[in-house]
Lab assay of single mutants.
Amino acid sequence: TTYKLIANGKTLKGETTTEAVDAETAERVFKEYAKKNGVDGEWTYDDATKTFTVTE
């Protein structure tokens, strides 16, 4: 399944996707990606669109 991340960070803005077996796995991947890019904010997830959003 393809999951999408929308990053609304102070230093990183944009979108990326990952293939994962479930939302929990995708969330781990995206949180690691955000951490590597210095983004720390509020996370939301929309199951209907398989989209995570992080906003600083």
Rank of each mutant, 00 (worst) to 15 (best):
G14V: 15
K10F: 12
K10P: 13
D22A: 03
T44C: 09
A26W: 01
T11A: 10
D40E: 14
T16K: 09
N37T: 06
K31N: 04
V21P: 15
T16S: 10
E27T: 04
T1G: 08
Y45C: 00
A48H: 10
A23T: 08
Y45A: 01
K36L: 13
E42W: 12
T16I: 15
A20K: 02
G9F: 12
A48G: 08
E19P: 04
N37V: 11
T16M: 14
F30A: 00
G14P: 07
E32M: 09
K35R: 14
R28K: 12
N8M: 14
E32T: 08
T18W: 08
V29D: 05
A26L: 01
L12T: 07
T53M: 09
K31P: 00
K4H: 13
T16R: 10
T25Q: 13
K4T: 14
T11F: 14
G14S: 12
G41N: 02
T53Y: 14
K4S: 05
V54M: 06
K13Q: 13
K50V: 03
D22Y: 03
E27W: 15
A7G: 05
V54S: 01
T18A: 07
W43L: 03
I6A: 05
F30Q: 00
L12G: 08
G38H: 08
Y33N: 02
A48R: 11
A20Y: 03
T53I: 08
G14C: 15
T25R: 06
K36Y: 09
T51N: 02
T49G: 04
G9W: 07
G41F: 03
L5M: 08
K4M: 08
T17P: 02
N8D: 09
K50D: 02
T55W: 11
W43F: 04
A34R: 01
T44H: 12
N37M: 15
D40P: 03
K10G: 10
A48V: 12
K50I: 02
T17L: 07
A23V: 13
K13P: 09
G38Q: 06
E32G: 05
D47L: 06
E15Q: 11
W43P: 00
T16V: 15
T49K: 06
A34M: 10
A20H: 03
T11P: 05
K35Q: 11
T51Q: 03
I6D: 03
E56Y: 09
T2V: 14
T18E: 04
K10N: 11
K31S: 04
V54W: 03
E19K: 13
V21M: 13
Y3A: 01
D22W: 03
E27S: 08
T16D: 04
G38T: 03
W43G: 00
